[in-house]
Design a protein around this nucleic acid. Structure first.
Lengths: 187, 187
DNA sequence: TGTCATGTCGACAAAACTGTCTACAAGCGG
DNA sequence: CCGCTTGTAGACAGTTTTGTCGACATGACA
């Protein structure tokens, strides 16, 4: 009703289970899918995963009561692009649908904060603070660049790159590029 | 000016470099910090990292022109909670400050979408299914073990280790241990 | 029955990396 | 002023990795 009341929206289907959606949606090819998590049978996240696997290329907006961080992350990994927590006003819903259709990722502020926290929660392996240059070479090391290439990009000599890396390895208590990269990407 | 025009906001300091901010902010203990990325001297992301390390417990709102996914993720990892891309209207800025102070994570819709994509990014599904042995060596490679040590642990020859790694590199489209490790730890 | 993926092994050369020195200038804190 | 950190740079030797050839046995699959 809410969608059909708008000139630029049309509801092309609605289903009461993930299984139904999985059989009907691939042929309908909707632009936006609004999905709950709690469904009879398979859950919404799994449903999204299977829709994506079937090649359904729609923007998926999760609209559910789950505000558990793991569920949110799982939903996004499965292929959802937006996440709203009920109850949602008609205005919010329409704005979100338009946003997601336009390439945005609508979500409530608290959801966004939880996402941010996923990036921030990190048990930092011990290691002293790296200097600016050390951090820079580490970043480039992680991309697999050779010392020579790093030297070029940073516009310093090969020898300096070597120096920073040596000092950094000591600080991080590692002794190979691979360990340093693991430290870097895993924090 | 914008902040001070509000009854519930007060600007307690402003600095033209990360270094200045690092010396002044720990004593000021602000509730919200608005930070650019492009700074003379250390960059804004590094500045945030060091502020956090110094125990500054503020909500950090990045306000910058960088819309590169890596920068965004790095900023959030460093401790930022919000991310706006310039230009920003006064209204938006104030809303974001209030939002972040209230525990939200203000960000523009396109930034949110990029964050979502970080969760969704998964390397090409084609020629990259690793075999059991390949996955094993990759795991050990990530710990920084030398080929010889990996051979010992897996009770196979150095040559076999070499073979698996070569085959794996081709599958992952990488050509160094560092890139493989980055692929591995980055899911 | 033959091809293909996988697991196993070998050799060689070129390239890259690591360890360990040394050196010097600039800046910061005591 | 001195000591320490950081950024910069160079050298050398030894180790490790990477690329590129191979080879052979198994088992799956068509």
């Amino acid at each position: 009703m809410i969608l059909n009341s708008q000139p630029d929206c049309r509801c092309v289907g609605q289903y009461s289970s993930g299984e139904e959606a999985l059989t009907a949606l691939p042929a309908l090819a909707p632009q936006v899918i609004i999905m709950d998590v709690n469904l009879p049978g398979i859950n919404g996240v799994e449903c999204v995963r299977q829709l994506v696997a079937k090649g359904v290329d729609a923007h998926v907006l999760m609209l559910t009561m789950h505000k558990d961080t793991d569920v949110i992350v799982d939903a996004l990994k499965a292929g959802a692009s937006g996440y709203l927590v009920k109850p949602v006003e008609a205005d919010q819903l329409l704005a979100a649908v338009r946003d997601i259709h336009g390439g945005g990722a609508p979500m409530t502020s608290s959801i966004a904060r939880k996402l941010v926290q996923v990036f921030q929660r990190k048990p930092v392996p011990e290691g002293e603070a790296l200097t600016t240059r050390e951090a820079e070479v580490l970043s480039l090391l992680s991309k697999g660049h050779a010392y020579k290439k790093i030297a070029d990009e940073m516009k310093i000599s090969y020898a300096s790159v070597h120096t920073y890396i040596s000092r950094m390895y000591k600080k991080l208590h590692v002794n190979s590029r691979a360990e340093a990269v693991a430290w870097h990407t895993g924090r």
